[in-house]
């Protein structure tokens, strides 16, 4: 059960041009996440969602403030699902699964189990180039779950896929999550997706600050067409409109 504590986090990037101002990716974020919860971070492009995950995973360092990701007092073990699958194209599916693990045969058994859970156990010996985009992303999801992380970070994992494939992958993800109950931080710009998947939605505003923090108390798994889900989606989309007032018409 991972504990994430983010305290007064700021991140600025150097100015893109010589005379420009530094780019503020995260203005000031303080946040706590604890327990077996599925938390979505929602917001428009450029509000620092992906930067936040990169800082949590150690790919980027904060400009100021602190982040701590722990599990029972020790540093938490992380899994990551990216926007694209990020598989090594020259390694087979199984070798890609084993690339992120340190245990030989035991690792293979676990990797097989998770591949099976996303319906891809028959692709062991195939190369990523032989799989469709959706199948590659499923391998990416299985890979992240197979390291049995304390905290799973997901960065818009379905945004590059067509609507039908994305929908079936969301169902897969719900099944996997119900079976494992990992702590998940899920970045998306899709409110509909966030409501279907999450226990809690954190809405970020441009400039990288928290605009809203919403709890969702509906049983899992949820169907996108469920009226309760649809009502909540409409309500949260309404709050989004408060953040971005519709342009006035003449």
């Amino acid at each position: 059960m991972a504990q994430v504590i983010i305290n007064r986090l700021k991140k600025t990037f150097p100015p893109p041009t010589k005379d420009g101002d530094p780019v503020v990716a995260i203005g000031d974020i303080s946040l706590e996440v604890e327990g077996n919860v599925f938390v979505s971070i929602v917001g428009p492009s450029g509000c620092g969602k992906s930067t936040l995950l990169n800082i949590l995973s150690g790919v980027e360092t904060p400009t100021s403030g602190t982040v701590s990701v722990t599990e029972g007092g020790r540093a938490a073990h992380l899994g990551y699902v990216f926007q694209d699958a990020r598989l090594l194209p020259w390694r087979t599916v199984m070798d890609n699964m084993l690339y992120v693990r340190d245990d030989g045969d035991a690792g293979e058994t676990k990797a097989t189990r998770y591949l099976d859970m996303v319906g891809l156990s028959h692709t062991h010996d195939m190369f990523p180039g032989q799989l469709s985009g959706g199948m590659q992303q499923r391998v990416g999801i299985a890979r992240a779950f197979s390291v049995e992380p304390d905290l799973l970070l997901m960065d818009e994992p379905f945004s590059h896929l067509d609507a039908i494939t994305a929908r079936s992958l969301r169902d897969h993800l719900q099944e996997l999550w119900s079976a494992t109950r990992k702590t998940v931080l899920f970045v998306t710009h899709d409110v509909v997706e966030a409501v279907q998947l999450s226990d809690r939605i954190i809405v970020l505003a441009p400039g990288g600050r928290i605009f809203d923090d919403i709890s969702i108390d509906l049983p899992h798994p949820r169907r996108a067409t469920d009226p309760k889900v649809a009502t909540l989606q409409a309500e949260i989309l309404g709050r989004f409109e408060e953040m971005h007032p519709a342009p006035a018409t003449a």
């Binding site: 990169n54 995973s57 150690g58 790919v59 992380l78 899994g79 990551y80 990216f82 694209d84 990020r86 090594l88 690339y99 992120v100 340190d102 390291v147 970070l153």
Partner: peptide, 13 residues
């Protein structure tokens, strides 16, 4: 760099 970042995120040696 995406593959490098992936390796860093998964703490690959």
């Amino acid at each position: 760099p995406e593959l490098r970042n992936m390796s860093t995120a998964f703490e690959v040696g």
